[in-house]
Design a protein around this nucleic acid. Structure first.
Length: 499
RNA sequence: GGCGCCGUACCCAAGUGGCUAAGGGAGCAGUCUGCAAAACUGCGAUUCAGCGGUUCGAACCCGCUCGGCGCCUCCA
């Protein structure tokens, strides 16, 4: 497959370092707050990358870290007046909760900075020894002037960046671009024993240490959001290459932002939605059995994959409901494919086989092209259209239907889509257009009109229809409609309602 | 100030040198239905922000202009 490499700024043919084994490292999160949709995107994108590599037959070793000691965590602990480790525990739990709901697979290794202190200290000591780092009081800095390739990943030159640097420069640093490898502990801060006194690692060093430890000095893929390109990944690469004297990651993969009104979703702008609140406010919630999140997760994943991973993606209620509508079509096809077929429709069934071969070939081709998930979804939709036409013109054999359904499920696996039962999906149709993820806080739509009363009205209407008293039946429908409730009569005689 | 990305139908979004410019949403029409809803079918850009250039040929390459965004500071 081909993948866009930030390092070379072009699509490159992906060749694994070792036969069919792919080693990938993705920067996870700093656990000091709930994750928002931007984090969800990154998680889903790399989830799909790892799934697709597996689909292609690679064995994948996927490492994703937790940054579990850092300034933001300590700040949060002070604000909340709790021990910093409690902040870490709380948000790691929250992270797992969100990732599970999004059906993001758990990586093979999830290392934490605090569990790698001896290795971190070793690497820093090694960098000092090789002349790439220097100590100032209780801090250690990486010396960018000792590493001439600095700026290679992000495509910038040290001098050019200086012009616009808006940061207050620590005068003790040799070069303003030098960054901390080790930070001496100030009073009240946690610290680990080191040759430079009590302290904690700088942000970038942990990823170098943990990727090298778990994947080796050279590995295949290093990923993250595009905001990590500079300075995080630039620094990681500089210190790793300086330390090992070799290449570090061979392919650097970065996903685009999630935006709100075309502006980057971020904590500082305050324009973010947490994954948790998306699920809580979801209009597609079901009330029973803990399955309530499946539909929302499916919608969110479809939405996140409907734009190419390197482009920015604008988040809105409208975009989510469009994803829901697109999925409705797929799942309603599933319902029809689950019904028994017409055994004499051999010709259509033969055409289906041909279309299926073409679909699977197209799917791989577009996914091979830098993980073109929007096009992959378009291929699914196109295939759906073809099947519908055969279904409308005579039908398909039961065998063909089963085969078609299984293809959707099989090729849905790399995307983490199309795995729900059509039944679970169809009973989720409770979309309420008045629900706005941002505006409506804790108003449950069902609190407006009592559902028991609605059920009673539906029963009354059913009786009226049985007597062929359509005037009464229609009046009941209209009354409900005036309160924003739509009724839907099913072929099996039951009536479904939605607000 | 430096570096970079983007601008495709009413909306979202693929396509990045040559077959009819994918797909989804919305809309409209039809099928189905007691009526509806849902679903299904059909319709929909002579045109790709604007201008100029390269080329036998450009939405795709080059230049300029306009508009939007990002990184250079913690950030997925």
């Amino acid at each position: 497959m081909n993948i866009f490499n930030t390092l070379t700024r072009k699509k490159e043919r992906f060749v694994a370092l070792q036969d069919n084994h792919v080693r990938m490292y993705v920067c996870g999160v700093t656990v000091y707050d709930d994750c928002h949709v931007g984090h969800a995107r990154s998680a889903v994108v790399f989830d799909v990358l790892s799934r697709y590599l597996q689909h292609k037959g690679y064995a994948v070793t996927y490492v994703r870290n937790f940054t579990d000691v850092d300034d933001k965590i300590l700040k949060k602990a002070l604000e909340e007046k709790v021990v910093w480790t409690e902040i870490v525990a709380t948000y790691i739990d929250a992270y797992y909760r969100d990732m599970n709901r999004l059906r993001v697979r758990i990586p093979d290794v999830e290392p934490r900075a605090t569990q790698h202190m001896p290795e971190i200290i070793d690497m820093i000591a090694g960098l000092i020894q090789k002349g790439f780092a220097y100590q100032v009081e209780n801090d250690v800095y990486y010396d960018v002037s000792a590493y001439e390739a600095y700026g290679r990943l992000s495509g910038r030159k040290k001098d050019e960046m200086l012009a616009g640097a808006r940061v207050e420069v620590d005068v003790r640093k040799k070069d303003p671009m030098d960054f901390a490898l080790w930070k001496g502990a100030k009073a009240g801060e946690p610290g680990w024993e080191s040759p430079w006194g009590l302290g904690r690692p700088g942000w970038h060093i942990e990823c170098s240490v943990m990727s090298i430890k778990h994947l080796g000095e050279i590995f295949d893929i290093h990923g993250g959001g595009k905001d990590l390109v500079f300075p995080h990944h630039e620094n990681e690469m500089a210190q790793s290459c300086a330390y090992t004297g070799q290449e570090f990651s061979r392919y650097w993969v970065h996903n685009g932002f999630v935006t709100i009104d075309e502006e980057k979703m971020s904590k500082s702008l305050g324009n973010f939605f947490t994954i948790q609140e998306i699920f809580q406010k979801s209009p597609w919630k079901k009330d029973e059995q803990g399955k309530e999140d499946d539909v929302t997760a499916e919608v969110l994943r479809y939405f996140l994959l409907s734009t190419h991973y390197r482009s920015d993606l604008n988040f809105s209620d409208k975009a989510l409901s469009e994803a829901k509508s697109a999925l409705d079509n797929i799942y309603s096809l599933f319902e029809r494919l689950e019904e028994s077929g017409q055994e004499d429709q051999i010709e259509n069934s033969r055409l289906l086989e041909k279309a299926l071969a073409e679909f699977s070939q197209q799917f791989e081709q577009v996914m091979d092209d830098d993980l073109n998930t929007p096009k992959a979804l378009a291929e699914f939709q196109r295939f759906r259209g073809e099947i519908n036409k055969w279904l409308a013109s005579g039908g398909l054999t039961s065998e063909a239907k089963t085969q078609a359904l299984e293809s959707f499920r099989q090729f849905g696996v790399p995307l983490g889509l199309f795995q729900l039962s059509s039944k679970d999906w169809s009973f989720s149709r409770t979309f309420d257009e008045s629900v706005t993820f941002g505006a409506i806080a804790n108003v449950s739509p069902s609190s407006v009109v009592d559902s028991n009363w609605i059920e009673q009205q539906i029963e009354n209407r059913l009786q009226a229809r049985k007597r062929k008293d359509f005037a009464t039946a229609d009046k009941i429908r209209q009354d409900l409609a005036s309160q924003g409730i739509t009724l839907e009569d099913r072929p099996d005689g039951t009536t479904r309602w939605k607000r």
